Simulated scan of single mutants.
Amino acid sequence: MSQGDWQRDVLRELGQGTPSSESPDRPTATPRPTHSEPATDSKAGSPSDEPGPAPGPAARGPRDPRVPIQAPQSVPTVDPRLAQAMGRPVHGDSVARRTGRSLRTLGASAAREVAEETQRARELQQPVTTGRLIAVTSVRGGVGKSTVAALLSRIFNHYRHDPVLALEADAALGTLPVRLGAESVRWSCAELAQILTPSMQLTDVIGYLVPVADGGWLLPASQGRVGAPLDVRTYRTVTLALRRYFAVTVVDCESLPGEVARTAMDTAHARVVVAPMTAEGVNGTRIVLDWLAQLPHSALATTVVALTANSPDTTLDLKTASAHLRETGVPVIPVPYDRHLAGGGPILNAMLGRDTRDAATVLAAEALQRAVRVR
């Protein structure tokens, strides 16, 4: 597809929905299963009928196109026995807070809020000529990194009309699929890296991805089992091949200083560093920002910090913490404590607190603004 009109081309492909087996220029050795069942097209061959184990993350070298890939089995993201224990989602804002906000929107501030939202929508809907990669990472786990990646993915899916991908490049037990509401996962980065070819169209590729309820697609790093982690070679193969199909790809990286995380931060068009609102979290994030400033290209100029509050009783002074990080020249977007996010499980847009939605929208707009500057 042409670089200038790639968005129009992929949208046309989605509208046509033509199976790859009906296109004469497709390689017949490439399987094209759906998310729930293996492909059974006689022209492409049935991967599930072939003996032998599915390829693992440690596979190396070019694949023999004459040997079909065995389709992996779908695996639930949460054990069904545990899923029954999940309670009802809680709204991010209390009833009193929601009522007070409704009353305030009737005043003079309503026009200003509408103008701000309109401006953000324009920034998020700006056209891109080639797919943009936005990497999300942190200095340690458990600070809301995957939650921020899921929020960004949902914001881009809400505002944009072209394809958006959420790509998990975290450890084997990452939480991005759960946060995006995926009930099961099947194909992972390791398997997909072995079958991607330049001749594949978007309608071929999405057959290997997990559809997200509110729009867009998800590619997990694994099937949620303990095993070999995602390696740099697989990450590079997948991201280089997939970026031409998707306007925006949000990458949920492993925590720094992991090798894949450093590669993702170095090669992304924009970076979001998630910092917890604690003294040690802000201090460690400042060290990461100083490291980004030393990279050969202008990595710091395309970086945004998400300062997350994971407790309603945070004692660190927000103004002082933000100022310490802004000394490096990066914008700092505070993401407030949200009862809905703190409860875990799938993120539901309608249950998010208003301040959380606003912060996520600003964060997405800031990241995309920086991503489009990179040529």
Results as ranks from 00 to 15, higher is better:
R60S: 13
L82R: 08
L316C: 07
A83H: 08
V148I: 06
N283C: 10
P331L: 07
I155Q: 11
S146E: 04
I333L: 07
R63A: 11
Y235C: 03
A149S: 05
R286T: 07
P19D: 10
L325G: 02
A166N: 07
P198N: 01
V272A: 03
V210N: 02
A85K: 07
H161A: 08
T118V: 12
A54I: 04
D25E: 14
F156N: 03
C253A: 10
T285Y: 03
A268F: 10
R286K: 11
V282W: 04
Q294N: 14
S94K: 07
Q201P: 05
D355S: 14
Q73G: 12
P80N: 05
T328M: 08
A193L: 02
I287G: 05
L202Q: 05
S184P: 13
L173C: 02
L300R: 08
D79V: 14
A350T: 10
R98M: 11
A365Y: 00
A182W: 12
N349E: 06
P276H: 03
T130H: 06
L292W: 01
P211A: 09
A213R: 13
T263D: 15
N157D: 04
R357K: 13
D162H: 10
R98F: 00
R32G: 12
V205S: 00
A228P: 04
E191A: 12
E259I: 13
H297R: 15
T147C: 13
A111T: 14
M200P: 12
H340K: 02
G343V: 15
P38E: 04
A169P: 00
S48M: 04
G100D: 01
T34G: 08
R271K: 05
V185A: 04
T239G: 00
M265W: 00
Y337N: 08
A71N: 03
G181C: 04
G45M: 09
S322M: 07
A83V: 14
T175V: 07
T315R: 15
L368D: 03
A321T: 00
D64E: 14
M1Y: 05
